[in-house]
């Protein structure tokens, strides 16, 4: 498969996941701000922007500003609108390799943004719309794409992004709360895993249990460890046939980080959760670079420096 196409597929996976997870995070935070009068809007918003990687936030930020930066504003690279547009742009570049049904769910999703319909949707309806579109895209991909290399890259992108975004979700929960178990409940709800969590821990709701569930649960598909595991599987499929060790730098990094999370004591991991989550996010970024170097580097065209036209 062409390196350029592989790269596009990887980024479709990432962008769609990022849009979806951003919607999940915003969903939790906006409803918390509405429900919990004790929360300081300014502080929460600042924390949220910083966790989502928006750094040039002005002195005073309110919810309106956050929604613009993370949902509606197409000039803000972290916004849902930008991410969907970028996913569609990647899809356009890889269009001849995508299944037609897949393209035909990605494109109308983008059309909603381009036509301005998206901007008229308000929270929380807008967030469930994003989740539904993401589910439609992922489901269509799942149902129509052959499990070839392209699929592996799509999945790899999705899993790396999901690990990264779940870590941000955990960080937001750890950020504001300091004891507010509402925050964790809402976070679990945002991942759609609240009931599963309750069943798993038999109704025992603690911060510690919630963090454990979101980080380490091997069966919950949005947990960090689950996502890293899947990403490793994709890399394994891409580099099949190695008998000893791992030759792929990305594989090593993701594997090490996952093992590190799993084999350390929970208390140790939770001791400084925000820093731990930042480390995880850095791993995801470095793994992406390694994947790029290993599989997509060919996409970097050599430049021709001519001295003039033809002969």
């Amino acid at each position: 498969m062409l390196s350029r196409i592989a790269e596009s597929l990887f980024w479709i996976g990432r962008y769609v996941e990022r849009a979806e997870d951003t919607a999940r995070i915003l969903d939790v935070q906006t409803s918390l701000l509405l429900e919990d009068a004790t929360l300081d809007e300014h502080q929460t918003c600042h924390g949220l922007l910083s966790i989502m990687g928006v750094e040039d936030a002005p002195e005073h930020v309110d919810l309106q500003h956050v929604l613009a930066a993370l949902a509606y504003d197409r000039t803000s690279p972290a916004s849902i609108a930008s991410n969907i547009a970028a996913a569609r742009e990647s899809a356009r570049r890889a269009r001849e390799t995508l299944s037609v049904p897949l393209w035909e769910v990605i494109n109308p999703t983008y059309r909603d943004i381009a036509s301005g319909t998206f901007a008229t949707r308000r929270s929380p309806a807008v967030f469930s719309w994003v989740r539904e579109r993401a589910a439609l895209i992922n489901g269509t991909a799942d149902a129509t794409m052959t499990r070839d290399e392209g699929w592996q890259f799509l999945m790899l992108g999705r899993c790396v992004e999901r690990a990264d975004m779940t870590s941000r979700l955990v960080a937001t929960a750890a950020l504001a709360s300091s004891g507010a178990s509402d925050q964790w409940t809402a976070t679990l709800r945002a991942t759609g895993g609240y009931e599963a969590f309750l069943r798993t821990y038999r109704g025992l709701e603690t911060e510690r249990a919630a963090a454990e569930f979101l980080l380490l649960d091997r069966l919950f598909p949005r947990s960090v460890v689950f996502s890293l595991n899947r990403a490793e599987q994709c890399l394994d499929n891409l580099d099949a046939g190695t008998r000893a060790g791992f030759h792929n730098e990305a594989h090593r990094m993701l594997g090490r980080t996952r093992a590190d999370l799993e084999y350390r004591s929970l208390s140790d991991v939770l001791a400084d959760l925000p820093a731990e989550m930042e480390r995880l996010q850095r791993t995801c970024a470095m793994a992406t670079e390694a994947v790029t170097g290993r599989f997509f580097a060919g996409a970097e065209a050599k430049e021709w420096h001519g001295m003039g036209g033809g002969r």
């Binding site: 990264d164 850095r282 970024a285």
Partner: peptide, 8 residues
């Protein structure tokens, strides 16, 4: 900004 790799 984010040290996250960009779009292709």
């Amino acid at each position: 900004q984010r040290a996250r790799a960009p779009h292709p």
